[in-house]
Simulated assay, not measured.
Amino acid sequence: PPPALVVAAHGSRDPRALATALRLLERVRVLRPGLPVHLGHIELNAPLLPGTLDELAASGAGSAVLVPLLFGRGHHVTRDIPDAAAAAPLPTRVADPLGAHPLLVDALHARLTEA
């Protein structure tokens, strides 16, 4: 089976952030129907990343890929997410953060034009 995709979001006290993350996950599920897609927050919101990884292992998932829903290589990307991956009860890899991907540049340009 494919590895589970775990979107590692920061978390926020603003409920719109969680709603946005959930909409993103639903879009990924539509585009990749055979891919198990999960959410894990670094802080402030449930589910927290370690709990998501524990649940995946308990459900029999073979492995996971953590994709940081973050732009740069700050502390969460260099320490918190790799630490969660290392402590996970299943084989786990960490992808690069979003960074300055061309699709994000296009989205930024579209938002600028809208504003």
Rank of each mutant, 00 (worst) to 15 (best):
P1V: 15
P2Q: 06
P3D: 09
P3R: 05
V6Y: 01
A8P: 02
H10A: 11
H10D: 07
S12W: 00
R13I: 11
R16A: 13
A17R: 07
A21P: 11
L22C: 11
R23D: 03
R23S: 12
L24G: 15
L25K: 08
E26D: 15
E26V: 12
E26Q: 09
R27D: 14
R27G: 14
V28R: 04
V28G: 04
V28H: 02
R29G: 12
R29D: 08
V30K: 05
L31K: 00
R32T: 14
P33I: 04
G34N: 10
L35H: 01
V37Y: 02
V37S: 04
H38C: 13
H38Y: 04
L39N: 05
L39G: 03
L39K: 04
H41F: 03
H41E: 01
I42M: 10
E43S: 11
L44R: 07
L44E: 05
P50Q: 06
G51M: 04
T52H: 04
T52M: 02
L53S: 10
L53Y: 12
L53N: 10
D54W: 01
D54I: 11
E55Y: 01
A57W: 01
S59F: 00
S59L: 02
S59P: 03
A61D: 13
G62R: 15
G62C: 02
V65D: 14
V67G: 09
P68Y: 06
P68L: 07
P68G: 08
L69W: 08
G72L: 03
R73W: 10
R73D: 07
T78C: 09
T78D: 03
D80C: 04
P82K: 07
D83V: 11
D83E: 12
A84G: 13
A84I: 14
A85G: 04
A86S: 09
A88G: 08
A88Y: 07
P89M: 12
P89K: 13
P91S: 07
P91E: 06
R93I: 05
V94E: 09
V94W: 05
V94N: 09
A95R: 02
P97Q: 08
P97S: 11
L98I: 14
L98A: 11
G99F: 03
G99H: 02
A100P: 12
L103H: 08
L103G: 14
L104Y: 01
A110R: 10
L112N: 00
A115H: 07
A115N: 05
